[in-house]
Nucleic acid binder design. Structure first.
Lengths: 117, 117
DNA sequence: TTATCATATGAATAACCGTTCATATAAAAG
DNA sequence: CTTTTATATGAACGGTTATTCATATGATAA
């Protein structure tokens, strides 16, 4: 009996299981891009600003600080990753959080801060 | 009446609201680091491997491919960000997902893939 | 149409980060 | 103790990315 690295219960079976339930490469990459979009403080600030409802670019810029061009680039990243959506209203483009999944993730992230488990 | 950029409802009030409910700088940065930890495909693979339960480093390495050193570095990043935890069992260190917040985030990320909202 | 206002985009630089290779630690077995 | 096995760490290279500046687009008002 020498082929076991781990003495604990059937880990080899779990490796098989892990391999079977592993999402495909493309899905993993897509999730990675989306988490990356959420990982930049400047973009997180935008999302927390949008938690209260839709805002136009100029007001987002006021709320998060920084300049308009930077905010616009960040908005594009968030939108490309379906984290926010936009609609036109007169001269302005109003941005808002895309869906509930995003809101829940933000909530989990905040709760996780004070979690001592 | 020239001081309104946005014709839509009380956006200026929302800017104030956004500023008030904005998490502090440190918390934003911490959340950023944690999302960044979740953003790398190699680390996401590890987490999906661990969704089925705890695994030792060697088995994680088998499940995700790559070499032991890279996996060890990734595990450190995940652990530093409280996304996973570890315990010793004989010769091995067994890693597992830290808490429910992480599991829910992974679930949201997967659901978000097939979300056409 | 022309001018103006709001937003978007391209290129470039600077900072950051994942992987690799080589090596270190630390527990367990002999 | 010494050796072996499992895991961790440090340094360095290569690739990625956020911001800035300048400019473009595109809707609206005149």
């Amino acid at each position: 009996m020498h082929d076991k690295i781990c003495e604990s219960v059937d880990h080899q079976k779990r490796v098989q299981q892990a391999l079977l339930s592993m999402p495909c490469e493309d899905d993993i990459n897509l999730m990675g891009y989306r988490f990356k979009a959420l990982s930049e403080p400047s973009r997180l600030k935008i999302l927390f600003a949008l938690e209260g409802g839709e805002l136009c670019v100029e007001h987002i810029t006021e709320a998060v600080g920084g300049n308009q061009s930077a905010v616009s680039h960040q908005l594009k990243t968030l939108k490309d990753n379906r984290i926010i959506k936009s609609r036109r209203s007169g001269k302005n483009i109003l941005y808002s959080i895309s869906d509930n999944h995003v809101l829940i993730m933000l909530k989990m992230a905040k709760e996780h801060l004070n979690c001592n488990e």
